[in-house]
Amino acid sequence: MIILLALLLAALFLIAIVETAPLVRQKHWPELAAFLFLWGLSSFLAVAQFVGVNLPNSMRFFEKILP
């Protein structure tokens, strides 16, 4: 479990490094900001999902509002 979590985190940070390096070099700051925001969001969700936090399910939402 711990090992898998470590692997997940390692993969996420590897992705971050691989993706940000060219953006910093090209000085594409808006893209970098978008990436970091999305990456932070998705990483948070991924880790939360992994450790078993109950996240809200959007499908339930649809089920509620639709007749």
């Binding site: 993706e19 594409h28 990436f35 999305l38 969001l41 990483s43 969700l45």
Partner: peptide
Amino acid sequence: VLGLRQYRPVVFPLGILVAVFCFLFF
């Protein structure tokens, strides 16, 4: 939508999101 100059930076995070949704939705 965000007015970026390239779409490549958002691909990986969206991929992670898809993976999360896979387990979240069902």
